[in-house]
Design a protein around this nucleic acid. Sequence first.
DNA 1: GCTCTAGGAGTCTAC
DNA 2: CTCCTAGAGC
Length: 779
Amino acid sequence: MNDALAWPREDGGARAEAALTPDHPLLRGLNPEQLAAVTLPPQHALVLAGAGSGKTRVLTTRIAWLLATGQVGPGGILAVTFTNKAAREMLARLTALLPLNVRGMWVGTFHGLCHRLLRAHHATVGLPATFQILDMQDQLGAIKRLLKGLGIDEERLAPKELQGFINGAKEDGLRPRDLAPRDPDARLKIELYQRYEEQCQREGVVDFGELMLRSYELLRDHRPLRQHYQRRFRHILVDEFQDTNRLQYAWLKLLAGEVEDGRFVPCGNAVMAVGDDDQSIYAFRGARVGNMADFVREFGIEAPIKLERNYRSVGHILRAANHLIEHNRQRLGKSLRPQRGEGEPVRVIELPSDFEEARWVVEEIGQLLRDGVPAREIAVLYRSNAQSRALEGALFQAGVPYRVWGGLRFFERAEIKHALAYLRLLDNPRDDTSFLRVVNFPPRGIGARTLEQLQQAAREAGCALADAVTLVGGRGGAALTAFVARLDVMRERCAGLTLGDIVRTVLDDSGLLAHYRAERDGAERIENLEELVAAAHAFVQQEGLGEAAADPDGLTVSPLVAFLTHAALESGDHQAQAGQDAVQLMTVHAAKGLEFDAVFITGLEEGLFPHENSLTAHDGLEEERRLMYVAITRARQRLTLTWAQTRMLHGSTRYHIPSRFLDELPADSLQWLSPPRGRGAGWGVPQPAWGRSALGQGDDARPAALAGLPPAAVATPEAPVSAAGAAIRAGMTVFHPKFGEGQVLAVEGRGADARAHVHFRRHGPKWLALAVARLTPVE
DNA sequence: GCTCTAGGAGTCTAC
DNA sequence: CTCCTAGAGC
């Protein structure tokens, strides 16, 4: 079965031999491990690529090498990434390396490639040619509609919970019939999963999980088709392999071999998986690090290639990263080796509040800017998006240009989603999700009552909402009929137009533009809609879609369908003021894959980083630690860690103790700008905040940037008092008559509203109102 | 049927 | 705190 040599090689062997010299231009400057990975003969391989070890370079050079030496043609390459950004970067680097037509290559995200498979074989899997994709928002809407239709109270089952259940099942490759109902609750969810699938099928839409699962089933159930792709893709390369879920790994296995008698037998192509188990931070969405170990076993990997030379960060930063991650038990084992100087130690500082933290960080940024560090080379990272507010405020006040990543993206904006819904209805009037989104937007007198009648009628007739409008009588029915007629007119007017003109026509005919023009603050929305028209024009230019989208395989899709797919699969840039030189603000998740000269990691507090929700999740703490590892390894020259005693969180003030991660860093590589405090110390001990500095004595030891702070800013707040009359502080061990002993993770609120987050030894984490709870400190 | 307001819930996230 | 939804009032 293992017949790698059975397939004819496309190259003359001699040409490949001649090129196999280390001074080939492509190989110049590679270290021995990188060279080994790039020039590996066709076989399965696992590359363990540490942060900053030149992973992307290895991947792209590998592909270029395979092509340049004639080992494979562009059509024989399949390269999978997790984000569109990574896919784009790979293509860009590749075209820079080789004067080459990348058209025939399959490079993209898992979902993008699955989508391509489903478009090519839509009839085989029973989807209409114009099927559209539901994003998470659309999916939630569809689920809410389903629950309402079945008369299931949202109290009984939260739509979000069902959404999580369905997506979780799909990530594991499970259909409703594969699930065993363990209890009535599970039975209901499985039943609803089934109903949801029927609804999607009826409406001609697929969610993200379905893209993956349906194309998996396509390959699994159609042997000739599977074999066609197995033969075609002689080289399969997977980026960020540690982030693959169960289904994605199973999908890869289908392309790389056959399961015989329960055992996986590779079919002769070569899979190169590149990943870093220490950077696996997406377990919460189904990623399964265990896939790496399974891959080693099932693909017969003898020795993974380890890339451990780090070209990014200075010695102290790398030592901090290595030391921290060694606290994780489940690791394949790997250590980053510095290739640059020692640099300066990692700086740590404690601040009284999130407000002061932001102010201090901004002062430091000011100094960096004065020292000539470009703004775009400075990043402020945080665990959760809510933390950006205080930082934005301080940056704005200081007049420092900044850019916040995350938040609403272009194609997720309400006005854009409205426009897209109209566009989707042009091709697929059965798309009930889109129908409901815009049937009364702009308002045209179609209310909840009418829509209930319509949905009832459609259910009874077993047809789409658009086909049921004639079944509704009265004024509502007339308004509905008028709406559908309007769509029909729109469709006719758009026939034969270019994509850009179609979008323009829809914006005019739907009344969206007129509606926002009349609205007080609709100016920005109109701007966005205009940008959508521009994006449509640009899309046609860029993709070369004169008449229809041409796939490498000659598959054709209408420009409109291609554009709608693009909108669903690439929700667009996080609000760009791209190109502008600005300080970068983002969550640690968003920072993965990026690097900066100077990095601030803020909010290093128990409950925030590690996040309190993670402590109850299985292996949650290890994932938080990997997240911290990712954060640390973003910095090239200078890394600063901050934590604040108090923080405004969901509207009230919370008191925290420093993150355990600070204790897990090597003391030799740290420089405390404020006196270091153990986690057990808590706060509230009356002492001058800077009285005993690690750097020296007296006020002079205060860091320069703090000199401007008023003394009041570092005063210690009073601790709330429990019902038992004891002052309760974060960090202390307490006793509760019912729950026993526990550690106080955080205290929030004041007076009668004060609450404590206590992690009880036997009963786990609980929030207790101090006015009620009889908590007493334990010696 | 539409608009306004009060109350409740959420909080990491890409495709 | 902020976003969303439900329900009351017009």
